[in-house]
Design a protein around this nucleic acid. Structure first.
Lengths: 334, 334
DNA sequence: CTGTTAGCGCCTTCAG
DNA sequence: CTGAAGGCGCTAACAG
């Protein structure tokens, strides 16, 4: 079928070893023979058999990109930006293999032989087992998005706590004193971080933490809608709401509109994440943008470095969020 | 490092051949030895080296999922649903390898050896070369989303023309006679199909096709915004606008809101695609939903069948869209 | 600079 | 039912 180095060797009247070396640009080979061999390879439109290469080099050329889940709880924007970021930084011989942890009956097939390295987009603590397995098997690993304490891994995150702090601070500076939060999915690290930033901002500015103003959510639009409805039923309504992500802000906006509450005139709403719609909502959403794509690219770069230099320096890197000011915040009405 | 069949063979006092057969459930092997071998394999947490398997079986276990591009023109919802659909239908030994065609300098590495099969999510005609290459190399192929005429490939699409027809018909039945369209990205098959459905609906109901009512777009939010602005500047404004996808409908909504035009009271707007926000916009969007996830799953199933049975029956399959009625359509004002 | 030889881990004849 | 031998395509010593 397709040509092998032996075919080329025959045509070039050299040994297949020479062909292998020539094609891999070994300095041992004479320039002219090299050219000659490469030309023949081109004519035969030769392409190496990666399985064979893999077997002998002990490298699969597969990079696994694992999500906690591919089915639910992952917003499409988040997913897309991650893949884009990884893809952008991935050198060409590597294959980007996308998986969800949750559809693994067992992880047996995740081995050093089958994956040169793994990028884990960690969204909840349900992946600790998986992380331990990877470490135990000495598979180069980069964990994105969630802080992995006490582990020797490269860990890249956005500073959500700080981002949320800045965001809520911005709201406070508009005169708001009754600020509610619709929280993210339970158990997610990001949920805790964002709430922590919210709490720190309140505290810093001497505002009380009102339990009734902290309503649960789970990062989807529907939960933002329900959360907002709950807040609107309160006798002492908040004047501003921090939604732990933009999807929930969309739901919150909807709930306001149904109750004829104008945003931002009667109610300030802010989000977190920056999905592609935030700018085009009515009103356009003021929120904090996480650098998902950069995190993914940076993580990929580090992973490849680890793989190719065989060095792993555990490190935790925080990448800055950005406050994006649009239209959904107004001074508190009185 | 990790265990091989030889290690197991030694411990079990059999040849590695026997181990291989036992692990592959060959009927030739005695039940008891089989059990014994499997037990040892489990104890050693043996996992096959796929590179070796691939080499000898001539199967890479890689399924390529190729997009026209990963960088722009692909909406995140679309991307996410596709991956989800494929992933759901992909049997476990296979790896889902995600690629964008546009970041390929040359396609040389896409060979039968490196990919057992390819799923092409075709978004424009810039992939004809690629398709020809795959056919020439006899790589099992399924093309999703775009009609590939005169080619012997399995082709799975949503019936956008019919979907658009039903949608516009629905608008017409609300009394609208001045219906505009904001078109999709130039050169995309879907763009043409949706416009065709629009035109057929107009024609069927005896309405004229007004050139000024056909404005260009490219499937992103911004272009919907600009398109709507253009329509609003017309002296004889349309009373309804068919946006060729939901992202553009979001932009159109925004433009209306800025011009204090109420939707749907003053202006009917419909979309196409159903991204996850459509239901939560204000007003919630009436549109046609494409079965992306089903298309992807079905395509994957067919591809695997082709690979495992070595049979390829070229076929074109249309999957039905669904009209989802929400709030953005009202009777024409008079 | 080039060739010979061996072997990566696995599966598949072909003999027992 | 089991084993011995060979080879998939490629790279890596080791010789020349």
């Amino acid at each position: 079928m397709s040509a092998t180095i032996k075919d080329i060797a025959r045509l070039a009247n050299v040994s297949h070893t020479t062909v292998s070396r020539a094609l891999n640009d070994s300095p041992l080979i004479n320039r002219e023979t090299k050219e000659r061999i490469k030309k023949i390879a081109r004519q035969l439109s030769y392409s190496p058999n990666f399985s064979a290469k893999s077997l002998v080099l002990d490298r699969s050329y597969n990079i696994g990109l694992f999500f906690s889940t591919l089915n639910t709880g992952t917003s499409s924007t988040f997913f897309y930006e991650t893949v884009k970021g990884v893809n952008r930084a991935l050198p060409s011989p590597y294959n980007l293999v996308v998986k969800g942890i949750d559809d693994y009956a067992d992880y047996r097939s995740v081995t050093r032989k089958n994956f040169d390295g793994v990028i884990l987009m960690s969204q909840s603590t349900n992946d600790v087992e998986f992380i331990e397995l990877l470490i135990e098997r000495q598979i180069p690993l980069v964990v994105l998005n969630r802080l992995i304490p006490n582990q020797r891994v490269v860990n890249i995150l956005s500073d959500d706590e700080l981002g949320a702090f800045h965001l809520v601070e911005f709201v406070i500076k508009h005169g708001h004193r009754k600020i509610a939060i619709i929280e993210g999915k339970r158990g997610f690290h990001s949920t805790r971080q964002r709430k922590a930033g919210y709490k720190r901002a309140l505290k810093t500015y001497g505002l009380p933490l009102v339990p009734a103003y902290c309503v649960p959510g789970n990062y989807d639009v529907e939960s933002g809608y329900r959360g907002m409805k709950r807040l609107l039923e309160l006798s002492d309504r908040p004047s501003a709401v921090f939604c732990s992500n933009d999807d929930m802000a969309v739901g919150a906006l909807k709930a306001c509109s149904e109750n004829r509450i104008r945003v931002p005139e009667d109610m300030t709403i802010v989000g977190f994440e920056d999905n592609e719609f935030s700018a085009y909502l009515t009103p356009a959403l003021t929120m904090v943008k996480r650098p998902i794509e950069q995190i993914s690219s940076e993580g990929t770069r580090r992973l490849i470095e680890m793989i190719e230099s065989k060095k792993a320096e555990p490190e935790t890197i925080y990448m800055n969020t950005r406050l994006i000011i649009r239209e959904s915040v107004a001074a508190v009405p009185h």
